[in-house]
Structures are given as C-alpha cells and as structure tokens.
Design a protein around this nucleic acid. Structure first.
Lengths: 214, 214
DNA sequence: CCGGTGGTGAGCCGATCGACTCACCACTGC
DNA sequence: GCAGTGGTGAGTCGATCGGCTCACCACCGG
C-alpha cells in the first residue's frame, strides 16, 4: 500500500487547495464573479493554472466551493437561554448582529445575491447556513417562551422575522446599498436592545405590572 | 432655423433611445451586467450598434441610465395621513410593501447591489429614489405624531427603521436569497398590519386604556 | 534507486467582448 | 431638390476569457 505516499501528497494538495480558495475568496469578493479570472486566482495563490484545474474542474465549481467555505465560518449556534425574554432575545440579537457585522459579510452577500440565480445549488447552502439558523433560533425560543406563558405569540414565524428585521434593517441591509454606511458597536448594541424592547412590548405577557418605558 | 427638423430628428432619437433602454433593462436584469453584451442589446432593440454608441458613449453610461430610469418608476410619495397611528402607519406600510413587491424590484436590487461598488454615482440615485423616501416618510410621520402626543418616540430614526424592517424582512429581502420565496397579497397585508400593531404596542401613548391584544 | 502522485509552465484554442470608424441611406422641412 | 440630421450595416481592432493538453520535474515512502 502506498497509503503514506498518498497521505503526504494529499496534504500538499490540501494546502494548495486552501491557497487557491483564499485567493479566490479575496478576488471574488472584491471584483465579483465575472471580473475575476482564473488566471489571476492562480497567480495570486502562487499556483499554476494546471493545478487549479486539477483541483477545481470549472470556475463555477471553484466559486461554489468558495461560498460554501465562507459560509461555514458561521459556527454552530449555542442553545438559547430561557426564562427572561429580554435576556433571551438580547443574547440571540447580539449574536445575530455580530454575525452580520463581520468584515466579509457585506461582500459575501453582495456576490451571493448577484450570482444566486445562476447557482441554484448554492441557494440551499445559504438557506441552511445563513440567516436561517438565527431565524430558527428565534422561532424556537419564542415558541418555548410562549408555552411557558412568558409571551403570547400567535404567529411565531412573523414575530421572529419582525425581531430580526428590526436589527438587520439597521445594521446590515444599508451596508449593501448605502456607501459608507457604518454603525458603531455602541449603536449596534442599542439597536438590538431596542428591538428586544419593541418585541417585548408587543408580545410579552404583562404579568407583574404595566409595561413601563424606562 | 432648422428647429422643426431638429425636433423631428430628436423625436426619432428619443424613440430609439427608449427602445435601447427597454432592451437594456430586460437584458441587464436578466443576465447581470457583465453577461449582457452591447451587441445583444442592439440586436434586441432593433437598433444598429452605431446608433447605440451615438446614444450612449459607453456600456457604463447605458447601465447608469437604465438604473436611473428604472428607479424613477417609483412615483412621488403622497403626503402621509395624520391622527390615527394605526391608519397612518398602515397606509405608509402598504405603500412600501407595494413598492417592494413590484415585478422587477428583486432583479433591480440584485444588479444594483452587485454593481454598486463600481458605480459610485449610482449609489446616490438609489439613495434618493429607493428606500429613503419611505424612510423619510415614516420618520416625518412619527415625528408629527410624537409632537401631537399620539406616540412617544425618542429615537425616530430607529423607530422608522424598525417599522420598515419588520415589513421588508418578510416581504422583500428573502426574495433575494431564498429561491421561490413568494408572499401572497393577503399575507403581505397581514405582515404590514402586524408591523403596525407592534410599532403601536411599543410607541403608542396608552391613552384610553391598556393596549389589548385583540 | 524507483514507482507514483501531484505540481509546473507554457502554449493553444475558439469565442466573445467593448470600442470605434466610415461610407451610405432615409427622411424631414424649407 | 437641397441641406442637414440621425440611423445603418459592416468591418476592424486589441484584449481577455475559460478550458484544455502535455511534457517535465519534485518529492515522498518503501
């Protein structure tokens, strides 16, 4: 068996693959799909064109691998806390804002949105790795709180979308359309807290007393 | 004076220009910027390539004109109603949802988001014609209601963003990322109404009685 | 020392692109 | 019928692209 040999060569190949993906990621995110040529990717990654073609059969496959890898950076979600709705939604909201605020996120969304019609398989990856986990997180959390009697939510899907929309519509979507849009960390925290407040004001069961505004 | 002659020829030129823009719009929105060739635009619009170049000095200029024209379809906003916050926000919300739900909107946003980094001037057009009018509409409305004592809103920008975000995060943004996402007209109306309810629950001054949930 | 795997560099291919030019034609209003 | 404006069709140009091939080399483990 030439297993050891195979292992070594596989390691080399893996390193080259990583170099290619890193260069491809940078170039794709900066220039877009069509403006990024395979020659430039090979040049930037310090790899020959032939190697690039051995690793990725086509430009589309390379792009697909790039996006998949970039999405996978989003780690697994932790179990959401329970009991206090303000604390619970706050935790989820801050995680969500942190995810959306990462450096490459805007450019990644930009190119994914642009090329998604031509990469149908890619849509599923985004669907399962992107916003969905947070949507499910909020959804599940609200369901649990609803059954616990802390909140009263008839339409959980809509409530979850409302909560996340109040955050993303301020800290993320404008970055795609308004050049120079930037939100300070303090403002982000404020936005999340206000989203929690509004959600609580709408859905929290007024137990101990009336919902005060301070 | 050859004014009449000029007028006639200008009319012809204007017609050709409209044909070119129509074809360019369809192709750009369908294929994206790079995949759309000037030859195809000329062919589809039934105009010679030479004419196309006389009308638009470059592909970038044509794209810019296309986006500007497509944005201008959004008419001027009417003055927002006053007095009842549910009715007022409802009106604005429904208008907003209607605008976002138009046929070409998703593809237009897709290509604008994709190419915006390379068309800085275009960003201003989107800024002044796109979401901004509605943001200002909500902002101004909330300010008026605040001063009228109907609502208590300390951070008007944030409240307006929350309101619009609750709507757009359900009826629009998913169309860019989730293939096959579709929302029925009834559901859209429901989403808007729920956004109004949530906003009212958070900001409405509880005058006559406690905010009931039914 | 040798077999095998993987990388390398160079080159070729057909196709397409944006940009530009130019001679010629159609049509109008005077 | 004449001048002028605008459209037309064809052609050219240099550049780039994705995809593919092939002979050759580097390096490992046995």
């Amino acid at each position: 068996m030439s297993r050891a040999v195979t292992t070594y060569h596989q390691r080399i190949a893996q390193e080259k693959r990583a170099l290619i993906l890193a260069a491809a990621t940078a170039l794709f995110l900066e220039l877009g799909y069509d403006r990024t040529s395979l020659a430039r990717i090979a040049e930037r990654s310090g790899v020959s064109r032939a190697t690039l073609f051995k690793q990725f059969p086509s430009k589309a496959a390379l792009f697909d691998a790039m996006v998949t890898e970039a999405w996978s950076i989003a780690e697994e979600e932790d179990p959401p806390p329970t009991g206090d709705i303000v604390a619970g939604l706050g935790t989820i909201g801050h995680r969500y804002a942190e995810l959306l605020g990462r450096a490459r996120m805007t450019d990644l969304f930009r190119i994914v949105i642009a090329e998604l019609p031509r990469f149908p398989e890619l849509a599923n990856a985004q669907f399962s790795h992107g916003k969905m986990p947070y949507f499910e997180s909020v959804r599940g959390y609200l369901l649990a709180e609803h059954e616990a009697g802390t909140v009263r939510v008839d339409d959980v899907d809509l409530a979850a979308t409302q909560f996340l929309g109040m955050i993303s519509n301020y800290v993320f979507w404008p970055t795609l359309l308004v050049p120079g849009w930037e939100v300070s960390a303090e403002r982000v925290a404020q936005v999340v807290e206000e989203a929690v407040r509004t959600t609580a004001a709408r859905y929290a069961v007024t137990g101990p007393g009336p919902s005060t505004n301070d």
